[in-house]
């Protein structure tokens, strides 16, 4: 429709997640209107990130070099591993400031509906990592059908001496009980905890 190079730009933009053909066209024309020095940094950043960034050899987080910044940090507690689906899931956990252990990124979740089986994920690498020095594995996969299936599968494979925990799932902070669905509320009941000290 336009010149071949503009068409190509629109086509490439439209391949990005969440960008439809109309948004791609809008972005392409925005880029065309800009001065070179305003948009070339974007092109350079894409090239650079693809050249420099790979996956951490140990935890499959994004890494510049063999290990990611978290694995390379000697102050982190190697005795606890938090298992997440995607590298992006590490960011919110880090922001809580509650966790000082290491991570393991699975690269997705088990899904019978999509045919994603254990061999498609970094599960064997996780099992190989859980040696004598690891005492707890926190399963922080999403609270969805696929995330739960993944957590159950991994929990079954873990050696008995390791403590396996799952992030609590229940009512969102600031929400109203009235609006909770039965699935969420059922979970909240199952995971209720005592407000007074009790013998464990």
């Amino acid at each position: 429709m336009y010149s071949p190079s503009v068409d190509r730009l629109i086509k490439e933009l439209a391949r990005l997640p969440g960008i439809g053909p109309r948004s791609a066209q809008r972005l392409a024309f925005h880029i065309l209107r800009q001065k070179p020095e305003q948009v070339l940094p974007l092109a350079q950043a894409i090239v650079e990130v693809k050249e420099r960034i790979g996956f951490c050899r140990r935890c499959f987080n994004l890494a510049e070099g063999a290990l990611c910044t978290i694995c390379a940090d000697s102050r982190r507690d190697g005795g606890v591993i938090c298992v997440v689906e995607q590298p992006a899931d590490i960011v919110p956990v880090e922001r809580t400031g509650e966790f000082r252990g290491l991570y393991h990124v699975l690269g997705g979740a088990l899904s019978p509906l999509d045919g994603v089986d254990p061999d498609d994920l970094h599960i064997n690498e996780l099992l190989a990592r859980v040696d004598e020095s690891v005492h707890e594995v926190i399963l922080a996969t999403n609270p969805t059908m696929t995330g739960e299936a993944t957590a159950m599968y991994i929990a079954d494979q873990m050696p008995a001496r390791v403590r396996v925990t799952r992030l609590a799932s229940g009512l969102p902070v600031g929400g109203d009980l009235e609006y909770a669905d039965e699935l969420t509320l059922g979970r909240a009941f199952a995971g209720r905890r005592s407000l007074r000290h009790e013998e464990e």
Partner: peptide, 8 residues
């Protein structure tokens, strides 16, 4: 507001 309502 959807919570777990629209899970498979």
């Amino acid at each position: 507001r959807w919570g777990g309502r629209l899970e498979p």
